[in-house]
């Protein structure tokens, strides 16, 4: 297939995933900000949301303060923020239009419908309870696209490039959420942690649809190191770093089989995966959770570059 087509598929999946992740993060932030002021004493929740989304620089060029209004406006609707939900959906749909022949009808229609409905959402409509309706809508659109992809796309190169885009973005996102809150998850924190931290821990899990799953897996109360383990090393958790790494490795292996050749991306994906597969959470804490996550985000980026160099250019 054309490299440009593969590139467009890869990126449109990334953008839809990014839109969904932003919606998840905004939802959790909004929930936390409704908590008693002790939970969010310095109002730093909205600030850390900006940090998680990787838009810190652009945001503070435009806004002095991370108020709820400013953050929602910037992350959800701002046309100047290429990672805003609006821009993500617009870019995904533009990419889709450029490669429609590579998409199934279901995929195209889910993206096109999202784009057609998008102008109906704006700052005024998401005030108050409208915000949740909007964020649900974003999540639904993204899930519909994923569902359409998995259920209807032929299992060949175009599918694997689409899935690679999804998982590389998801992996990056889970790592960022963890990293912004890593100080809360350090083992020594457990002693000082009280009710406040409990809500923060729960929030991390909710942002990745992991709150109930956590309980299903561990059958005990929230423990910070278990939360870290859950999101980093548990293969049952579909948004964990290891799940994403396994999926990427799998996609690349399938591409390698189909094309009869392997490249640097395969080696890197294998490396990322085995570090998670054979590592221990104790070692991660020993190395330093923050250092580990920083390293993971960088490796993930390099893997993206290698995929691009190997296939998309």
């Amino acid at each position: 297939m054309l490299s440009r087509t593969a590139d467009n598929l890869f990126w449109l999946a990334r953008y839809m995933e990014r839109a969904e992740n932003l919606a998840r993060i905004l939802r959790v932030t909004d929930r936390l900000s409704l908590m008693p002021s002790t939970v969010d004493a310095d109002g730093s929740e909205w600030h850390s949301t900006v940090v998680v989304s990787g838009c810190e620089e652009g945001f503070y060029e435009k806004h002095e303060e991370a108020t709820p209004e400013n953050v929602i406006s910037y992350l959800a609707f701002d046309p100047d923020n290429p990672s805003s939900i609006r821009c993500c959906i617009e870019t995904a749909r533009r990419n889709a239009r450029a490669v429609r022949t590579a998409l199934t009808t279901e995929q195209w229609e889910s993206l096109n419908a999202a784009w057609l409905e998008l102008p109906g959402w704006n700052e005024a409509r998401v005030r108050g309870s409208g915000l949740h309706r909007f964020l649900d809508w974003v999540k639904d659109r993204s899930l519909l696209f994923h569902g359409g992809t998995v259920a209807t796309m032929l299992r060949r190169d175009s599918y694997y490039f689409t899935r690679l885009g999804t998982f590389i973005e998801r992996s990056d996102n889970t790592a960022r959420i963890l990293d912004v809150k890593y100080h809360l998850l350090l083992p020594e924190h457990a002693e000082v942690g009280g009710g406040i931290d409990y809500y923060q821990w729960a929030a991390i899990l909710r942002a990745v649809s992991g709150y109930r799953s956590y309980h299903a897996v561990y059958k005990e109360g929230l423990k910070p190191w278990l939360i870290a383990e859950f999101l980093i090393m548990r293969e049952e958790m579909p948004r964990s770093l290891i799940s994403c790494a396994a999926e990427m490795k799998d996609c690349l292996d399938k591409l390698g089989e189909e094309y009869g050749q392997r490249n640097e991306a395969h080696r890197m994906a294998g490396q990322v995966h085995s570090r998670l597969r054979f590592g221990k959470i104790e070692d991660v804490f020993r190395q330093g959770l923050h250092e580990f996550l920083t390293e993971h985000i960088a490796q993930n980026d390099r893997l993206g570059v290698e995929i691009s160099r190997g296939y998309l250019m």
């Binding site: 054309l2 490299s3 440009r4 490039f161 591409l255 094309y259």
Partner: peptide
Amino acid sequence: YVMDDVVYMRTTQ
């Protein structure tokens, strides 16, 4: 792109 008067398309392979 064109090389030696032959037209190629850039593909993933």
